[in-house]
Simulated scan of single mutants.
Amino acid sequence: MTTMPKVLKAASQTIRNLLKPAAQHSFSEDRLRNDRQSYITMTRALVEAQLEWRDAELSSRLWKDVADRGMDRGRLLHLIYSVEAHHDDEALQNADAAYLQLVDPRDP
Rank of each mutant, 00 (worst) to 15 (best):
Ala22Gly: 01
Arg54Glu: 15
His87Asp: 15
His25Glu: 02
Val103Gln: 10
Val103Asn: 05
Ser38Thr: 11
His86Ile: 05
Pro108Glu: 15
Trp63Pro: 06
Glu52Gly: 00
Ala49Lys: 12
Ser82Pro: 03
Lys9Met: 03
Ile15Arg: 02
Val7Ala: 07
Gln101Ser: 13
Ser28Lys: 12
Ala95Gly: 13
Gly74Arg: 01
Ala23Phe: 08
Gln50Asp: 12
Gln50Arg: 13
Gln24Cys: 01
Arg31Gln: 14
Val83Lys: 06
Ala97Gly: 14
Arg33Asp: 15
Ala45Asn: 13
Leu8Ala: 02
Pro105Phe: 01
His25Pro: 01
Lys9Asp: 03
Leu19Gln: 00
Arg33Met: 07
Ala45Met: 14
Asp55Cys: 06
His86Gln: 02
Arg54Tyr: 08
Ser12Lys: 02
Leu102Tyr: 08
Pro108Trp: 10
Arg16Leu: 11
Pro105Tyr: 04
Lys6Cys: 00
Val47Ala: 08
Arg54Ile: 03
Arg31His: 03
Trp53Asp: 06
Ser28Gly: 05
Leu79Asn: 04
Gln24Thr: 06
Ser38Leu: 12
Ser26Leu: 09
Phe27Arg: 13
Ala45Pro: 03
Leu46Ile: 15
Gln93Thr: 07
Lys20Met: 00
Gly74Tyr: 01
Pro108His: 11
Ser12Asn: 11
Ser26Thr: 09
Ala97Tyr: 13
Leu79Gln: 07
Ala98Val: 10
Arg106Gln: 04
Leu58His: 05
Asp88Glu: 11
Lys64Tyr: 04
Val66Glu: 00
Ser82Asn: 13
Arg54Thr: 02
Ile80Leu: 14
Glu90Leu: 14
Arg16Lys: 13
Tyr81Glu: 09
Leu19Val: 01
Asn17Thr: 02
Thr41Tyr: 14
Gln13Asp: 11
Met1Ile: 05
His78Ser: 14
Arg75Asp: 09
Glu57Trp: 01
Val83Gln: 08
Thr2Pro: 12
Asp68Cys: 00
Arg106Ile: 03
Ala56Pro: 05
Leu62Pro: 02
Asp30His: 07
Thr14Met: 08
Thr14Ala: 08
Tyr81Leu: 10
Asp88Phe: 06
His86Tyr: 10
Ser28Leu: 04
Arg106Leu: 07
Gln93Asp: 10
Leu100Ala: 11
Leu51Val: 04
Glu48Ile: 04
Gly70Met: 00
Trp53His: 01
Leu100Phe: 03
Asp35His: 08
